[in-house]
Nucleic acid binder design. Structure first.
Lengths: 214, 214
DNA sequence: TTGCCACGGATTGGATCCAACTTCCAGAGT
DNA sequence: ACTCTGGAAGTTGGATCCAATCCGTGGCAA
């Protein structure tokens, strides 16, 4: 259900365009272009841009318009260090509320990740896997921030994956399996540990590839 | 200097009203009221509300309007656990960029905190102290999130202080002094440790006072 | 050639009017 | 007495038009 509200539809459209890489970091977003393309007026576009700014997907400057933020290597590194500390909280909050159905879903998504070879598909599935592990966390403030952190580094994950291919994928799968097992067993300590390690290892791999940041 | 842009002026006005407690959690904000009071049209008010939503100061629902979010005790606890893990990153990022002038300012602010007895004044000064220690952190994503976390719990700090008075204030001052000293010495490990402990102790004190959450 | 100023197109910000939705209350029907 | 329905009032969302600002371009002078 698209909510019926135009501004949220526009926001969804732009969110997809940015996360899919169609709009790269640094790209400018002209209100009238979007309005025309979606058959709406500029007003809902303006509101959509504010919504996306809250998600960290665009940055807005008065009288200069909106553009997709361009993060430096150091900024991305800090974002990953933030994730390393925040997401363990989310998984611990979430685990008690995950039932067998959720565990099944996780197993299924992880199986699809292991069968997959496409970069774009991996990005979606990986995000789905982690968000599923957090789906029992009902603290809005936390989930908003976590989503924001994923959003703002989506572009770099993509270019890194396109570069490294599936060479390092075995580690991701091993870590996901360990996380999934800990979640199933209800072992919060292990879940925290493996999740933190997963993010940390990714951060360090990224730091070895400065070419991702042009 | 107020940016000249109406929507940011409106946002600043509402931000002040919310942080000062004038608009309490749960309070509804009608666009026309604000517009009339500030002599603007409803449009900049709408944009201001979106800006504030990004700061976590209001929540917006389609066709139902904006209101100041009401956080549960558990949510506030999680927000403090987030702060406990994020702000140490901020202070470590910041410290290398703080010069003697900044150290002087910190000393001055802390002195004023120790001389102060007013609750409202303490809230401002305490925030100023911590934000000063983070002022050298130029990672936008991190500072945006930290600000958001402070914003969303400002109300609870106020009511707790009004309740506990300055009984527990000595601990705050001791911790501030230790943080300030570590910052001066450029000792990142100590700064991290004392800051984390400061936030953690506050969180635990809050958890002992459920009456703050009505 | 280079730097500066002015001007005009392009783009965003704001005001007003109209449409859509929500909420609340009265009244009929059970 | 209770529930459900319909409609009116109140509030937010969207479209259009106008104002303010930015930015590139071209001309002019040093």
């Amino acid at each position: 259900m698209t909510d019926g509200v135009s501004s949220t539809r526009v926001a969804a459209y732009l969110r997809e365009a940015i996360l899919s890489g169609e709009l790269a970091p640094g790209a400018r977003i002209r209100q009238e272009d979007v309005a025309e393309r979606l058959g709406a007026s500029r007003l809902p576009v303006r509101e959509a841009l504010r919504i996306l700014a809250a998600d960290g997907l665009v940055e807005h400057e008065a009288h200069k318009g909106a553009r997709v933020p361009r993060l430096s290597q150091h900024e991305v590194d800090v974002v990953y260090r933030m994730r390393e500390r925040l997401e363990p909280i989310a998984i611990v909050e979430s685990m008690p509320h995950l039932d067998d159905g959720a565990h099944e879903q996780l197993e299924e998504v992880q199986r699809r990740i292991e069968d997959n070879t496409d970069v774009e598909k991996f990005l979606d599935l990986d995000r789905e896997f982690h968000m599923l592990t957090y789906s029992g966390c009902h603290v809005d403030t936390l989930m908003t921030v976590v989503t924001r952190l994923w959003n703002s580094t989506q572009h770099h994950r993509r270019t890194y994956l396109a570069l490294a291919g599936h060479r390092a994928m075995w580690a991701v799968n091993a870590e996901h399996r360990l996380i999934l097992d800990a979640v199933r067993r209800g072992d919060a300590d292990d879940a925290e540990r493996y999740l933190g390690g997963h993010i940390r290892r990714t951060r360090i791999e990224l730091s070895h590839h400065p070419e991702v940041f042009r």
